[in-house]
Design a protein around this nucleic acid. Structure first.
Length: 230
DNA sequence: ACCCAGGGTCATA
DNA sequence: TATGACCATGGG
């Protein structure tokens, strides 16, 4: 399977570098503390960041932006504080689960020392944290080198012809493929994710803004819509 | 007045 | 294993 690997690591690296260079990727994930990154990762699930930031402001204003505090918070109060982010009942439970896991593990300082595989499986064990949220937390919260193979990423990679047709279908296979292909690359994976999302957003929506975009992406339905050039 | 976003879980077939 | 419903708010 690796003999005729259907991915050109050189071209992938060049394309990613090019993409990163086209977007302002600095401070793409605004956060004042490490814990705030983890909270934001849960709150942003299927939600615009604008709504998340007001919820985070509420949490900060009331002093609940700490794992220990969130473990004991009244669920109804937490729901009210994060209401601007939507799905408040669901996300309140998830935040408490996350905070409890952190507390039981001995705090973020203890978790920081764990190897990435252990940390990742631990995160995935928390109710409400799936692959994408776990990897966002690993990358932006714990500064680990992980590729976030979200839908934007998989679509972009496929449309660019950078991965085989089979890869984008599964999160994990795509993630592993890209991570191994970029093993020796100096590219910042967080910057790459930011650029991919910004690129996806720029090509999203009913008014495609980038029909003349030099990158090989297409505008239209579902993010990258129009069929690939024949 | 729609539409859906920096997902994940759970119930079906 | 593979879809689909569901969560829910606010900005465009």
């Amino acid at each position: 399977m690796s003999a005729d690997r259907a991915i050109d690591a050189r071209r992938l690296e060049a394309s990613c570098r090019d993409l990163i260079g086209r977007y302002d990727v600095a401070d793409w994930w605004p956060a004042q503390t490490q814990f705030e990154v983890l909270v934001g990762a849960v709150l942003v699930q299927n939600t615009r960041w604008m709504n998340v930031s007001t919820a985070i402001l509420e949490l900060r204003r009331t002093g609940f932006l700490a794992a220990r505090r969130l473990c004991e918070i009244d669920p109804a109060l937490l729901q009210e504080l994060i209401r601007p982010a939507g799905c408040q009942r669901v996300k309140a439970r998830r935040l408490v689960s996350l905070a409890t896991w952190i507390h039981d593990a001995g705090g973020l300082h203890a978790l920081d020392r764990l190897p990435t595989p252990e940390l990742r499986s631990g995160l995935l064990g928390v109710h409400g944290i799936g692959y994408e949220t776990a990897d966002a937390i690993l990358g932006f919260g714990f500064q680990r080198r992980v590729f976030i193979a979200d839908r934007y990423a998989r679509t972009w990679l496929m449309r660019m012809g950078l991965v085989s047709d089979a890869e984008p279908q599964g999160y994990e296979s795509c993630r592993r493929t890209v991570e191994s292909a970029l093993l020796g690359s100096p590219l910042c994976m967080n910057d790459l994710h930011a650029a991919i999302v910004l690129h996806g957003q720029a090509h999203c929506g009913r008014q495609p803004r980038c029909l003349d975009c030099p990158l090989t992406t297409w505008c239209g339905q579902n993010g990258f819509g129009l069929p690939p050039p024949a």
